[in-house]
């Protein structure tokens, strides 16, 4: 089933959360329906396996249900759910022995973006490439990035989240979101150029 991802109304979330806490299973099912597309959307950037993806998303919603009484409405329900989803995905990868890179900072790109050797940039994806191939290359590069960079790129570039929402979700300041995105994009460029030199553009 292909889902068109829409932005659910927060007021309806509040009502559905209250009804779920009151024991209404159907209300929880509606909450899942509202967000399942977005959660599948973010989790697929952490695993390519459909089975693992479903396990992680299912686990995310069950954890959310169990913790629902702790949801304080200080952030939006979607931000709260995203946080659970990303933590669940990272825990899953860790248990599976596929530990994501967890560099706190990346010396190579702290400060001015690293441009070791000849200055280079990257080319746009080949217009002849299938979307699946572009997705494969993009994920291949993302998997090489430290987790702090990968998360902000996923949330901004794929989920199109506002900086404030990313800051709330990751528990960091907007200034940190800005600088992380700046460095993450520089790192993405460098890794793409290294893994796929055909897309590297030497600048003269």
């Amino acid at each position: 089933m292909t889902t068109r991802i829409m932005q659910p109304a927060p007021t309806e979330d509040t009502a559905l959360v209250a009804e779920t806490l009151g024991g209404n299973q159907l209300s929880f099912q509606l909450l899942v329906e509202r967000y399942q597309g977005r959660i599948f959307g973010v989790v697929r950037h952490y695993t390519q396996s459909a089975v693992e993806m479903e396990d992680i998303v299912q686990d995310t919603f069950i954890k959310a249900y169990r913790k629902l009484h702790t949801f304080q409405h200080q952030s939006s329900f979607s931000t709260w759910l995203y946080r659970i989803a990303i933590n669940t995905a990272l825990d899953f990868l860790k248990r599976a022995g596929r530990n994501p890179v967890r560099a706190v900072e990346d010396p190579e790109v702290v400060g001015t973006p690293g441009r070791a050797g000849a200055p280079r940039s990257i080319a746009a994806p080949d217009s002849n490439l299938e979307r699946e191939e572009i997705a494969r290359i993009t994920h291949e590069v993302l998997d090489e990035l430290p987790e702090i960079f990968r998360s902000v790129l996923i949330l901004r570039e794929f989920e199109e989240m506002a900086y404030q929402d990313i800051a709330d979700l990751l528990g960091i300041s907007i200034g940190t979101v800005e600088s992380r995105l700046f460095r993450a994009r520089a790192r993405f460029r460098d890794v793409l150029a290294r893994l796929h030199p055909e897309y590297a553009v030497e600048l003269g």
Binding site: M1, I5, P125, R131, L153, E157
Partner: peptide, 13 residues
């Protein structure tokens, strides 16, 4: 553009 063109439809079981 790399990210935009890498977006795929979400499939929910």
């Amino acid at each position: 553009r790399w990210f935009r063109e890498a977006r795929e439809d979400v499939v929910v079981p």
